[in-house]
Design a protein around this nucleic acid. Sequence first.
DNA 1: GTCTATAACGAGATAGAC
DNA 2: GTCTATCTCGTTATAGAC
Lengths: 231, 231
Amino acid sequence: MSAVRGARERARTEITAAIKDEARRQLADQGAANLSLRAVARELGMVSSALYRYFPSRDELLTALIVDAYDAIGETAEAALAGAGRAAPRSRWVTVCTAVRGWALARPHEYALIYGSPVPGYTAPGATVGPASRVALVLISIVGDAYRGDGVALPPVPAVLRSEADRLAAEIAPDLPPAAALALTAAWAQLFGLITFEVFGQFKQVVTDRDAFFERAADGLADSVGLLRRE
Amino acid sequence: MSAVRGARERARTEITAAIKDEARRQLADQGAANLSLRAVARELGMVSSALYRYFPSRDELLTALIVDAYDAIGETAEAALAGAGRAAPRSRWVTVCTAVRGWALARPHEYALIYGSPVPGYTAPGATVGPASRVALVLISIVGDAYRGDGVALPPVPAVLRSEADRLAAEIAPDLPPAAALALTAAWAQLFGLITFEVFGQFKQVVTDRDAFFERAADGLADSVGLLRRE
DNA sequence: GTCTATAACGAGATAGAC
DNA sequence: GTCTATCTCGTTATAGAC
């Protein structure tokens, strides 16, 4: 009984994975807006109605792909942080940024799914919020370490942003000073600006040595969140 | 004779504009990937083949929309710069950044067309390159002014990026020091990172006072390109 | 010459009967 | 699950109105 249950579960997992793999393949040449359950089914030799046993709608399949992508890029960031060991916060920052960029360049279509244009007619459910924040949490932890260590220098928060900065710090990083939480939020968006421009081709005929360029820019972002340069 | 020619020209211009307007409307609820010549024609009471008198293909229509969008955001930046008069470079920088952001927030779908995910199966022709650089040119001119004025402070360029920075400066801003050209390119991408996160909803439930947040972040970008803070 | 309309192609999606 | 009839699409050829 439980062996049967186990085999069934295993088959279900495998088929679910196959569906997502095929859907990811179609993301590449059709785009998320044109993801079609029927086409996925056809390519897998199934009939479209069979897919509904695994994903109740196209939107649910999309959500699964989005969650997977956020998880994958988040894991990449976490692994890079773990691999950076006891390096200085500034060095860990650059390592993590570079790893995130590497993931994006290797999987441009999955990157576009989570950081590109919203899919028309689709609104992300709450289930995507957690996975979506994993990269940010890694960045927060690095800056948090720095605040318990070397010390950090940041310009003061202007009066109009005092309450915003307080709220931000309270919600995302209670152990960070408000000025750092504010700077971190901006740096987070700016990091993905660099990656997006590269992945989406805006640097074509502009930046040639993109590895070095990115590392330098990520280093600059470390400045903006107050991570001290190694003496 | 020339009056007839004039009337024809006028009609042609009007219809071309109507086609683009309708296409833009469809961008909003269908997305660029699903822009349909037939649907545009139908909505305009024309037959699809008639559209080919105005746009030789669907991709050419897309290109026209992209060029229009780049031109519009570029003109917005140029107008903001002109309106900023003789203010300090740092203040002009923030003004231009804010104007660009304002355009993007007012026209999220056109923004997505030019700074969002690439349209599958479409490759932008060379004609988009010029309009695409107008915002960057405005930013370059501001920093250029600062270099002829107050003076600027930037960290030195690392050895690996020396030639990249030299080439960048030579190509985009011959009157700027290489370090500034490098920093400007990064700030350019980072600026659109901030805007993209806001337009695409990544700041939802994260940043609440987005006006003040953006102004502060744009101010930080001014730092990163070496514009001096007003004493 | 400039335009619009009709009709058609090949490909693909979709809805429903079976 | 399968089949079919009916939709969509981009694009082209062609004919005729102004």
